[in-house]
């Protein structure tokens, strides 16, 4: 590793950190919208109405079946033809939120199903309404069971934000690409970008595994 590479990395770091901040915002936004959406889909799928269940399943299958890149392109380049125009950041958030909702609905459904039927029965026998039983007994425990898997998925969504460089969102990869285009030093700048992704993903992975071990308590 020579001095010019190191000094270039130091020079590029602020721009990449700006990009990282955008990536993290995108991740946060997608999860903040997508996970509640996933919970809603999970509840609808385990509901009683057949029509509602069918609609939820179709949404989930579309969200999981279509590659995130396709959803992204569809929202950004496709929807304007239908009169819906979003800026790059908003389009990226919407597309990734949809993917998040579809995938996390399965994770959350498994979590909700892990709550013992006996507890739901006890809530019913106590006279609690179906709604209260969901709100106070099933959802708190189901979500808790799902947290490690949700964190694992969140890491994947963080990585998937790099796809949004294709619609000109100035996130981490987008910033690296711009520097590469200006300096023609693609290899050097992409290695640095990769290291920045790693610096986020590796600790996040260890935290997930730590939580996985801890969440077992009181369940």
């Amino acid at each position: 590793m020579n001095d010019s590479l190191l000094s270039s990395w130091v020079e590029w770091t602020p721009a990449l950190l700006d990009g990282l901040w955008t990536s993290l915002q995108l991740t946060g936004g997608s999860l903040a919208i997508g996970i509640p959406g996933g919970l809603l889909l999970a509840l609808l799928m385990s509901g009683r109405s057949r029509v509602v269940k069918a609609v939820a399943i179709v949404l989930v299958e579309i969200g999981r079946g279509m590659p995130a890149l396709v959803v992204l392109q569809l929202v950004y380049f496709g929807l304007p033809s239908a009169g819906l125009t979003f800026g790059p950041f908003l389009a990226a958030t919407a597309a990734l939120a949809l993917t998040t909702a579809a995938y996390t609905s399965e994770i959350l459904r498994a979590g909700l199903q892990a709550v013992p039927a006996g507890e739901v029965e006890a809530a019913a026998a106590l006279g609690m309404s179906h709604r209260d039983s969901l709100r106070y007994v099933v959802i708190p425990q189901g979500v808790r069971v799902a947290i490690p898997a949700l964190l694992g998925f969140s890491i994947q969504i963080f990585q998937a934000t790099s796809l949004t460089f294709t619609i000109a969102v100035p996130e981490l990869l987008g910033q690296a690409y711009s520097i590469g285009a200006a300096t023609f030093r693609y290899l050097d700048v992409l290695v640095l970008a990769g290291l920045v992704y790693l610096a986020v993903v590796l600790p996040a992975g260890s935290i997930t595994r730590l939580l996985e071990r801890r969440m077992g308590r009181h369940l």
Binding site: P116, G118, E119, E121, A122, A123, L126, Y136, H218
Partner: peptide, 19 residues
């Protein structure tokens, strides 16, 4: 709801809410 209000039940497997 009205019927269950007057009736308490205890199960073999306790069924407390563990959280």
């Amino acid at each position: 709801a009205k019927l269950r209000r007057g009736v308490g039940m205890v199960f073999q497997s306790f069924n407390l809410f563990p959280h």
